[in-house]
Amino acid sequence: MDEKVVEVAALAGLPAAAATVWDFAKDENILLFEGEMAAGKTTLIKELCRLAGVAEPVSSPSYALVNEYESNRGEVIYHFDFYRINDQREALDIGATEYFYSGNKCLIEWPSQVRDLLPEHYVTVTIDKGVGEARTITLKKN
């Protein structure tokens, strides 16, 4: 299993960290974002989408469960937030597995809520809070 650790001292380091995430993920389409509440999962996803060429506003799909973005190259990126679901069937009801196997990038917050539905291969992005804006981002390929 490949692993990489990225230290971010402040928000100013987020663009470089996001570039490292994209580089590490390479051809993997499924990225799982782990971390406690307010660790910066959505903030990192916003930066990843910006780097991918998404011009529209990126926000957490807390109530919609999934947001769809399109890059300036026509690539589709799906952003999921499963924090509020009570049962994996809710994810199935929105067609989560079809999204996961679509061949498009899927950025998934709170993946533990849908663990049984996830594809076999993915990248886990774990964000640990440090002091102030400092974050440690651990990347693992599974």
Rank of each mutant, 00 (worst) to 15 (best):
I85F: 00
E47Y: 01
G103P: 05
G132D: 07
D81S: 00
G130R: 00
E7F: 11
T97F: 01
E70P: 01
T42D: 12
T124A: 14
E70K: 05
P119I: 00
A64Q: 11
D116G: 11
A19Y: 00
I108Q: 13
V21T: 04
K4S: 03
L32S: 02
K129M: 12
P119D: 08
R115K: 11
E75G: 04
E7I: 14
N142H: 03
N142S: 13
Y122R: 04
N86C: 13
E28F: 14
N104L: 02
L31F: 05
D87F: 01
I94S: 00
V5M: 10
N86F: 07
L31T: 12
A91F: 00
A10F: 12
L92F: 09
N104V: 02
K41E: 08
T97G: 13
W110F: 08
E133S: 01
F82N: 03
A52C: 10
E7R: 12
A18E: 10
A17H: 07
D116V: 14
K140F: 04
L107E: 02
V76N: 02
Y69L: 14
N67D: 13
P111E: 13
D128W: 07
R50I: 01
N142F: 03
K141S: 15
A134H: 12
T97S: 12
A9F: 13
M37G: 06
P15G: 03
Y69C: 14
L117G: 06
Y69N: 14
A91D: 01
N29E: 11
F80L: 09
T124E: 15
D2Y: 12
E120M: 06
P111D: 14
V21L: 13
I85Q: 01
Y83R: 15
A19H: 07
Y69M: 04
R84P: 13
C106S: 08
E120F: 05
H121N: 15
T136R: 15
F33A: 09
G40K: 04
E56V: 14
V123D: 07
T136Q: 09
V5D: 10
T20R: 14
I127A: 03
T138D: 13
D87N: 15
C106D: 03
V125I: 07
N72H: 13
Y63P: 15
V58G: 00
F33H: 02
A134N: 06
V66D: 04
N104A: 08
R73V: 08
E90F: 05
V114L: 03
A16D: 15
D23P: 11
K46N: 12
C49E: 03
V21N: 08
A52E: 10
V21G: 07
S60C: 01
L117T: 14
